[in-house]
Simulated assay, not measured.
Amino acid sequence: MTAEVCEIVITAPDAEWAADFTRTLVETRLAACGHQTPIRSIYRWDGAVHDNAETRIALHTQLIHADEILRLTNQSHPYKVPCFLVQPILSASPDYGTWIIDCTTRPEAI
């Protein structure tokens, strides 16, 4: 089970974009859930160091959806180069892992 599920991390400039994007992914069964956290990002861009408030999204999904989520991120994200990281979930409670898979199995795949 654990080889099938992952956490995708995306950062965004504001909580509303993050919430709308997450809601779309959950509604279309590309993610089981998304957890949002306000963060402070310090990074280098265009030769300068920036210090900005952002929102971090942690999506729980199946690895098979990562490419589609990346495509949608690149299509709608306000940043030119959005943060997009895929992290395998090495261990999860069996019930939670099953829930992720159940929530992200699209009806046409059943």
Results as ranks from 00 to 15, higher is better:
2 T>D: 13
4 E>Y: 06
5 V>L: 00
6 C>W: 07
8 I>P: 01
9 V>E: 07
15 A>V: 15
15 A>M: 08
16 E>M: 09
17 W>F: 15
19 A>H: 11
21 F>S: 08
23 R>M: 09
25 L>R: 00
27 E>H: 05
27 E>R: 08
28 T>H: 13
29 R>P: 05
30 L>V: 04
31 A>Q: 06
31 A>I: 11
32 A>P: 11
35 H>V: 07
36 Q>A: 15
37 T>E: 00
37 T>L: 04
38 P>R: 00
38 P>Y: 00
39 I>Q: 02
39 I>P: 03
41 S>N: 03
44 R>S: 05
44 R>D: 13
45 W>T: 09
45 W>N: 05
47 G>V: 04
48 A>R: 00
49 V>S: 11
49 V>R: 09
49 V>M: 14
52 N>K: 02
53 A>E: 02
53 A>M: 10
55 T>E: 08
56 R>G: 07
57 I>A: 12
58 A>R: 01
58 A>I: 09
59 L>S: 12
60 H>Q: 08
61 T>L: 14
62 Q>P: 12
64 I>V: 06
65 H>D: 08
65 H>L: 13
67 D>C: 11
69 I>E: 14
69 I>F: 11
69 I>A: 12
71 R>H: 06
72 L>C: 04
73 T>A: 03
75 Q>P: 11
77 H>I: 10
77 H>R: 02
79 Y>R: 07
81 V>K: 02
82 P>E: 10
83 C>F: 08
86 V>R: 06
87 Q>P: 12
88 P>G: 04
89 I>Y: 03
94 P>R: 04
95 D>K: 13
98 T>V: 15
99 W>N: 03
100 I>W: 15
102 D>I: 08
102 D>E: 15
103 C>H: 15
105 T>W: 01
106 R>F: 11
107 P>S: 13
108 E>G: 08
110 I>M: 08
